[in-house]
Every structure is written in structure tokens, then in C-alpha cells.
């Protein structure tokens, strides 16, 4: 794993009207590192991810990606959303090619690359299908392929497997791990699932109730490469238990704040 910093944010805050949504929050992530953020609902996880993705601007604080102050969305950053964000009027192949099209890659070339991307996520046979003809898990794989074909140095994922059933979620996690290991890109991953965070991450950042801050940082003591089988290990179980203890208190605070 390279020690070169890929993401560095310092004292980021964000307000929505009178509501303090986030921060001050500082985080960092390196190339090749998989960092997950877990925390209670409404703590500002997605807001932080969108700030790092350049989709929102912080009210204060700074964000650097690849050593450059972030001014807006970067071409080298790929974002995978909870809802697959597939374009229903395009075939699966053209959905995957969309990111390349936005970069101005020629039609034949981008379709070739998109075909290889579909092979990576096991959907080569569905290239001519439309998203409505696929299951939720398959649509999410299309979104993943669309993110990967641009060969990003940073992947931001906002609960990408949140709407999937447990077995699909585990299989998708295995796929994501394999691809990320091969690409060597950095990942910032938002999830509600502690198990998913433990399975995927090198480090897990636990956020407080709103306004979200990092209350703890846990290094996952599991070797990489991994598959979902590691979840049955004692080390993984201890890690899940420790994170749950941290989150439980914050989730209770969030629930009391909401009621």
C-alpha cells in the first residue's frame, strides 16, 4: 500500500439553513486504501462523501485530493450511488460507456472499453439489455462497471449495496474487493452495515450523531486480499462488536434528537 495521501480534508463543516449537518471533520485516505465511514442515520456521511466528490462545497475547511485543492468534480474520481443511477433509455453497454462519452472518448473505443468493463462484473451477456430488464444487483454492477472503466484513482461509494439482499451484497462486496485490489485505487465507502465495513475496509471511521464528526478510527486487523468468508473469523467478529459498541451510543443520541 502506498503512503501517498489521496484525500486530505481538514475541519470541514457544512450547514443546511439553521441545521449544522457536519463537522468540523478531518479525514485522510491513501492510494490503495479502502476507508469506510459508518455512523447513525442523518449524521452527514453522504454530505461528506459529496464534498469529497466535489458535488457540494464545504462552508469552511479544506479538501485536497491527490494533493490539489478540490474545486469541483474530478475526472479521476468515480462515484457510485445507492440507487444505481443507470440511464433507463440506454442499453447496459451504453450506460457503462457513459462516463467515457462524457470524457470525449470516441464511440468505438468507449464501447470496446465498456465491453471489457462488463466482463469484469460478469454482465457481458447483458450488453444489449436495458436496465429495466435487470435485477437491482445487476443494475448496481452496471453502475460499478461504469465507475471502473474510467480507471479512477479514487472511488466514492454511497451505500452502493444498501438496496440489495444479503447474499447479493456479499457477492458484490467480493467483486468490489477484487477489482479495487487490481486497480490499486483509493476508496471512500459509506455504509450502514458494520459487517460490510469490516469485510471491505482497511480503516473504518465512526461518525457521531449530527453534526457528524469522527469519534473513532479502527484499523481492521484482517489480511488482504479477502473474501466474504473472513466474516466468520473471530477477528472480524471482535471488530464488528467493537464498532457496534461505538455506534450504538451515537445512534441512540441520533434517535433522541429525531424524536
Amino acid at each position: 500500500m502506498s503512503a501517498q495521501p489521496l484525500i486530505r480534508s481538514h475541519d470541514v463543516t457544512r450547514r443546511f439553513g439553521a441545521v449544522e449537518a457536519l463537522g468540523p471533520l478531518s479525514l485522510h485516505g491513501a492510494r490503495g486504501e479502502f476507508v469506510s465511514i459508518v455512523g447513525p442515520s442523518g449524521c452527514g456521511k453522504s454530505t461528506m462523501l459529496e464534498i469529497v466528490g466535489g458535488l457540494q462545497r464545504p462552508d469552511s475547511g479544506s479538501v485536497f485530493v491527490a494533493g490539489v485543492p478540490l474545486e469541483g468534480p474530478r475526472d479521476e474520481t468515480a462515484i457510485v450511488f445507492q440507487d444505481s443511477a443507470t440511464l433507463p433509455w440506454r442499453t447496459v453497454l451504453d450506460n457503462v460507456a457513459f462516463s467515457l462519452e462524457a470524457r470525449g472518448v470516441a464511440r468505438d473505443e468507449r464501447r470496446d472499453i465498456a465491453r471489457r468493463g462488463l466482463e469484469t462484473v460478469g454482465l457481458a451477456a447483458f450488453a444489449a439489455h436495458y436496465p429495466a430488464q435487470l435485477s437491482g444487483g445487476m443494475r448496481q454492477r452496471v453502475a460499478l462497471a461504469r465507475a471502473l472503466v474510467t480507471e479512477p484513482d479514487l472511488i466514492l461509494a454511497d451505500e452502493p449495496f444498501g438496496a440489495l439482499d444479503e447474499q447479493t451484497r456479499l457477492l458484490m462486496s467480493d467483486e468490489l474487493l477484487a477489482v479495487v485490489d487490481r486497480l490499486g485505487c483509493g476508496v471512500l465507502f459509506i455504509t450502514h452495515s458494520i459487517q460490510e465495513a469490516v469485510l471491505l475496509s482497511d480503516r473504518i471511521l465512526v461518525m457521531s450523531a449530527r453534526p457528524g464528526r469522527i469519534v473513532d478510527e479502527i484499523t481492521v486487523p484482517l489480511e488482504r486480499p479477502r473474501t466474504s468468508e473472513v466474516l466468520s473469523s473471530t477477528a472480524a467478529a471482535e471488530c464488528v462488536s467493537r464498532i457496534w459498541a461505538l455506534i450504538r451510543r451515537e445512534a441512540q443520541v441520533a434517535m433522541q434528537g429525531a424524536s
Binding site: E50, P73, I79, F81, D83, A85, L87, F98, S99, A102
Partner: peptide
Amino acid sequence: VPEPVRKLARSRNL
């Protein structure tokens, strides 16, 4: 246009 698609478009600097 769904919100995730709008965000996708913004993330690609369209």
C-alpha cells in the same frame, strides 16, 4: 430526472 442521475451528470462535469 432522478436525483442520482443528476448527481451522476454533475460528477462527470457535463
